[in-house]
Design a protein around this nucleic acid. Structure first.
Lengths: 305, 305
DNA sequence: TCGACTCTATCGAAACATTCGATCATGCCC
DNA sequence: GGGCATGATCGAATGTTTCGATAGAGTCGA
């Protein structure tokens, strides 16, 4: 049963002959006997049922068919080379895929720049990005789905995780202008907040043990998706806090109003939510992952948000 | 010297295993012994220095690396298949390249539609198009560079050529508005033309034997390029005839004026230049070329220009 | 025109790679 | 537990590719 398909090796020989200009030169460049080159080309021609070289002259000349097939042969060879390079990178320790999970709170613009640079340097580790919130995000790191997480500090407490502080983000209490709280321009007291519906981001996972942070109202709606919370706030369904970077535009064009909260000690401070990077100690990230972490923390040091 | 590069056959086996879900099933689908499949995968893994399947479970599961490399393997296989298909088409008689030469007079819009259809049906015969004029165009067919010519009838007389009438094109005498002849609105006599410079398309080849057609003026400039002639007419350097389809727009927006010529018999008829397709009798075009010719002459019958 | 060189095709022998079929240990599923 | 399927491994058989030598033909400069 003779092979019906050319082998990759035959294509290599074909390309070498084209590039070197003669069978003998190709044999030299491939460090093989000239007869092996002749044989390979003969086999290739036989399998393709096409004459590739015209041997009438002293030096073999590509036939028209050979010229037409040459670019395809190069393409196959190039793709095979790319496959080899990719495998080599993986064999050398590159992660075949750089999977990371990002907490929905995380400012994406910080991430995209780092990712762009990293994937330019590590083209064989294409990123795959998950977005989730709080414990659910941390879980993806803990169970090994993602090598790296960009998480809320408080939702990723675990001795299995190596965590490093990245940035704080400011949480801003807001309400829609048509909401009673949003309509008032003056500071509101905690007692003023209490009767209104507060929209609280909830944890889809059980990891945070259902502890609540910054819950003031007696009526709370729990929403597991930050975008949904955002939309509901804009729709005036209640009040709640959102990361500063998410509401900057809404505050500027008036779709949301910032609430100033007064407690016993006076005007309350802006709540800052610490974010960190995290990975499992027993599965340290590969080169691309380490690069990403380094770039992110360098960026955090430069521009602490 | 063990091969450093995977063979195409190994990739096929890899893909078969992925698609079939097990080594044994792959062996069945490839009609080979199961041990051959095991051997091929082992070799492939060895050459790539990457574990592709996790054999811990009952059925082999792609490793992460295997999953990452899979698309590349498919790509190589697909490109190799494309190469085979292309070669098969050539072996079956398809011309590796559909080379044709078109006389500059030929209305391109007629050609493009036919070419689009033909190259959709014959993707393995990509067209290569030359444009030249008169005898120079015919020569490209006669010397075998082009399988097909779309030529002026009078410049392609040769017993070696099989020619078929396609269409006539109308030649329209024109001059720029700032030219003395273009300024006059009334018909001009042949005697009126005589003193003015006439721009005449000349034949770069010697094939037409330097016979002139439709030369009236005593002072003639000979230009070997139709586009240059066109530009010079618009610049007001003289008068001359151009194909109707080339000057329609210029006539409409006034950049050129049509000359009405009066001879002894009254207003002279519009000169019609017959165009034909041509190919060497001893080298009839392949399937793509025949298709193109059929489509062109069908189009000519439908819309005789 | 000769002679030295290089080219490709071809041959048999040797080296190599791949295949097969049989056998084994293991996991699955009823 | 028993029947069945899976993948690894082995030796033998088969096929493919390589090598080196040789022959015939083209090239190029003296």
């Amino acid at each position: 049963m003779p092979a019906l398909t050319p082998s990759y090796d035959q294509l290599q020989v074909f390309l070498a002959v084209v590039d070197e200009g003669s069978f003998s030169a190709a044999a030299r460049s491939l460090k093989r006997a000239q007869s092996a080159v002749t044989y390979a080309i003969q086999k290739l021609e036989e399998q393709l049922d096409v004459r590739l070289f015209d041997r009438a002259a002293y030096r073999p000349a590509l036939t028209e068919a050979g010229r037409a097939l040459l670019p395809r042969a190069r393409l196959v060879a190039d793709e095979m080379q790319a496959l080899r390079n990719h495998a080599e990178a993986i064999a050398a320790g590159a992660e075949p895929e750089l999977r990371l999970v990002v907490d929905a709170m995380f400012p994406m613009d910080r991430l995209v720049e780092s990712l762009r640079l990293v994937s330019a340097r590590f083209p064989h580790s294409p990123p795959r990005i998950y977005v989730d919130s709080m414990g659910a995000a941390a879980e993806l790191v803990l169970n090994g789905v993602c090598a790296i997480g960009l998480l809320l500090e408080f939702s990723s407490v675990s001795e299995h995780l190596q965590r490093d502080k990245l940035i704080d983000i400011a949480m801003i209490p807001v309400a829609a202008p048509n909401h009673p709280l949003g309509a008032a321009d003056s500071p509101v007291s905690i007692e003023d907040l209490r009767p209104h519906v507060q929209l609280v981001l909830s944890d889809r996972s059980g990891l945070s043990g259902d502890r609540d942070y910054g819950v003031f109202s007696t009526r709370t709606w729990r929403i597991a998706d930050l975008g949904a919370k955002h939309a509901m706030l804009k729709a005036g369904l209640g009040w709640g806090s959102l990361p500063a970077h998410l509401v900057a535009e809404d505050l500027a064009n008036g779709r949301l109003r910032r609430l100033t909260i007064r407690d016993e000690a006076g005007l309350s401070e802006v709540v800052r939510l610490p974010l960190c990077s995290a990975f499992r100690r027993d599965r340290p990230p590969g080169p691309a992952g380490r690069h990403l972490l380094a770039h992110l923390s360098a960026g955090a040091a430069r521009k602490p948000a």
